[in-house]
Amino acid sequence: MSAPEGWNPRIVVFACNWCSYAGADTAGVSRIQHQPHFRMIRVMCSGRIQPGFVLRAFEKGADGVLVSGCHIGDCHYLFGNERAVEQFEKTRAVTRILGLEDERLRLEWISAAEGARFAQVIDQFTERVRALGPSPLAREAR
């Protein structure tokens, strides 16, 4: 289904406090402009981002969900981001069966210094989700 005219995707970003949320702040301090259709939810560690959070976001109508944390090996809590990968894969396994396109759910590592990369990831993800059109769950929910 193609997106209606003037439609903007609704994207939820779950980010860890130490790297990815900080990376978004760095984009701000450097005034690196990017697409505004995402909303960020901060947790302390990407390991906290449980399947229930992501699924709830889709359930409520998110067109895309981005999970992001510190680069592997750089976790503020040693290996929390590796737990994040496991939870992400579990989530992806069920969203796939639900029939949500894989590209609606993405995992990215963004460090506190990578403001430009944060902006780039947001722009790319926004465009991917825009190309997919509204989530099947958002269609009825709206």
């Binding site: 449980q50 399947p51 229930g52 959070f53 699924l55 709830r56 889709f58 359930e59 989530t91 069920v94 796939r96 069966i97 639900l98 029939g99 949500l100 099947p136 769950l137 269609r139 009825e140 929910a141």
Partner: peptide
């Protein structure tokens, strides 16, 4: 339990707008 993930799944199915990929 399980962070409400399972209930969320069920409610999403109740929406009726999904084309599941459940027969792999």
């Amino acid at each position: 339990p399980h962070g409400g993930a399972l209930q969320s799944l069920m409610r999403m199915m109740a929406r009726g707008t999904l084309q599941q990929q459940r027969l792999d």
